[in-house]
């Protein structure tokens, strides 16, 4: 493992990407800002002195993504094709979650842009709300997923506390949610459950619909097997499949944003 931003003499340098192939890149990052319940209530009601907090923070995040190269020394200036910044108002935990996605067709990844968008959106939220709450805390800024490029796809595996679904010694509960699809880039969300998840070493992934030789479960299996030999296992033995939580066969069609789950025979009761 090498740090690509250091040259052979250990000095910082900008990686020459001229000869890298242009591919479609996408990265999603998220973080949150913790605040007093009263502050969140004011934010929701629009009662903060500086006005529309979320709209301002969204614009700030998008602007920041575009200017990442000015902030982070060895980042390239990138012609981003898309930046989205979304907010989730989490009243239960008294915080605002910030999710940013950046995309482009180009030669370098866009995770720094997504992380910068989240960071600056959080800072802007702080600035907009600080008149009423100085104890706010920004935290948990991290990369959730990255697609495209030589180093391959990355999907953050949430920590044990956040994925109640069990592996090994874990606790129980829910399946983590994969990245979302949208109309511009139709995709299918794939989950692997129980023993299958452990054998494959992956719980969730998303796959562009246009990479499927046929838009059905059989086509999805072929596309997965082509992507990684591990997935040939899906065509072997007793592997069951559900599309949108209904049992499915190889011929079952798949459309944009469908949730397809692969799992072993059930053993409850």
């Amino acid at each position: 493992m090498n740090l690509t931003h250091l040259n052979q003499r250990g000095e910082a340098h900008m990686v020459d990407v001229a000869d890298k192939a242009e591919t479609r890149r996408e990265a999603t990052a998220s973080g949150h800002i913790l605040m007093k319940p009263d502050t969140l209530a004011l934010l929701i009601d629009g009662g903060l002195p500086k006005g529309d907090v979320l709209a301002t923070a969204r614009i700030a995040g998008i602007q920041a993504a575009k200017r990442t190269h000015e902030l982070i020394p060895l980042c390239h200036a990138l012609p981003l094709s898309k930046v989205t910044v979304d907010f989730h108002l989490d009243e239960q935990n008294s915080r605002v979650e910030v999710i940013a996605t950046c995309r482009l067709k180009g030669r370098t990844g866009v995770e720094m842009e997504a992380l910068t968008a989240v960071s600056v959106a959080c800072l802007t939220l702080y600035d907009m709300c600080k008149a009423v709450d100085k104890d706010m805390e920004i935290g948990a800024i991290h990369l959730d997923a990255k697609r495209g490029g030589k180093s391959g796809d990355y999907q953050r595996q949430p920590g044990a506390a956040m994925t109640p679904i069990v592996t090994g010694e874990g606790a129980a509960g829910q399946v983590s949610v994969g990245t979302r699809c949208d109309i511009d880039s139709p995709c299918v969300r794939v989950k692997f459950l129980a023993e299958l998840r452990e054998r494959l070493g992956v719980s969730d992934l998303t796959l562009p619909l246009d990479t499927l030789p046929s838009t059905d479960v059989g086509g999805l299996k072929s596309a997965l097997a082509k992507r990684d030999a591990r997935f040939t296992r899906l065509g072997e033995g007793r592997v069951l499949c559900a599309v949108n939580q209904v049992m499915a066969l190889d011929a079952t069609p798949i459309t944009n944003d469908d949730e397809v789950a692969f799992f072993p025979p059930v053993t409850g009761g």
Binding site: L193, A194, P264, V266, T267, G268, G269
Partner: peptide
């Protein structure tokens, strides 16, 4: 038919229960 899976923990290791 219900999507539940059991993993058993034993002194000699963990394993997923077979159907």
């Amino acid at each position: 038919r219900a999507p539940f899976w059991k993993k058993e923990h034993s002194n000699t290791g963990d394993y997923w229960v077979a159907e």
